[in-house]
Design a protein around this nucleic acid. Structure first.
Lengths: 188, 188
DNA sequence: GTCTATATGTCGATAGAC
DNA sequence: GTCTATCGACATATAGAC
């Protein structure tokens, strides 16, 4: 089914943020893409921070959808990990978007204060889910790694975020070699 | 010795870029910090892209200084690696700056085309130097890792970039656990 | 090398008609 | 829900005096 205007605005804003950052797109950019006017976008999201909140909420929802899908369909832990990593793959394949955490981390100190908890919560949720998968997979003998699982989860999150950025600067091959090393390090 | 106006401008611009990104600071910001006027900054760097070029050149020079220092003073490969990682430590300790690659990667598509090669060259130089250190250290039996050295270098660069960003969102402890895992994975 | 002054553009945001 | 019209703030950038 087609997206509502509100949903379309969020999708476009998300794209702009992950393409160029929060401070490099305008209401006008989105209005042109939708064939409407500046003021119509403000009707749906009065302030730019409202729009950012919409993007964060959508991203949280998207992540939770991934979690549910994984619960019902993935038969082993590598499936679950791959479903998580697919979030980054999809960003790479959509014109080299960086991940939302990576894009907003740089802009963080320019954002309204009360939006930082929303980003924190999203990233924490992702890291916690990954931690649990890693821990269970190690207990099941499917993954192997040293140290506590939450540290390994942090390493994977930061590496994947950095991989999308390095891919922009040095080429997409960097992304693949980083990702494959992270996986190899879990199964060797 | 004191910095020239030109050098001060570059230092402030670098700081702004690594704090908030390329699109979130203005000539006015820098002018105020130096106690001069907008137009005086434009005298030294007519266009904003000229200023960015100055920042990239300074960063390249800073990296080459590190390389020279390492050549003459570091007696083993862990010393060399730590000197490299200190670049990231210093960013963390300077009000949670992200690294230059991380900051500019998000802004990349908003930058003048002809500046991308300069960033590419800087990052390539860093990765190549690290590759060589890793390779030599493995041959010398000081480091241990699987795969080709350039892939491991890419992983370390991306992880450290991401670590500075994750530290902003989740707290500085994330940086430490990521860094220490990278080191442990080389010596175990 | 720094100043005043200004040109020109874009941004986020709002009032009020339809 | 979208429009026209507009405001004030701020951006990059330049001309010309000192």
């Amino acid at each position: 089914m087609p997206l509502s205007t509100r949903e379309s605005i969020i999708a476009l804003a998300e794209n702009h943020i992950q393409q160029n950052g929060y401070n490099a797109f305008s209401y006008y950019d989105i209005a042109v893409q939708l064939g409407i006017k500046n003021a119509a976008v403000h009707y749906h999201f009065p302030k730019k921070k409202d729009l950012l909140k919409g993007v964060l909420d959508k991203s949280e929802q998207h992540f939770q959808n991934m979690v549910e899908l994984s619960k019902h369909n993935d038969i082993n832990y590598m499936d679950k990990l791959n479903r998580f990593l697919k979030i980054y793959d999809d960003n790479l394949n959509r014109q080299n978007r960086v991940c939302l955490m990576g894009a907003l981390a740089t802009d963080l100190f320019t954002l309204p204060d009360h939006l930082r908890p929303a980003l924190n919560q999203l990233v924490e949720a992702m890291k916690n889910w990954l931690t649990q998968i890693l821990e269970e997979a190690r207990n099941a003998g499917e993954f192997k790694f040293d140290g506590v699982a939450s540290d390994r989860a942090a390493l994977i999150c930061s590496s994947m975020a950095g991989a999308l950025q390095l891919a922009r600067v040095l080429g997409n091959k960097e992304y693949e070699v980083i990702k494959s090393q992270l996986i190899k390090d879990l199964i060797k």
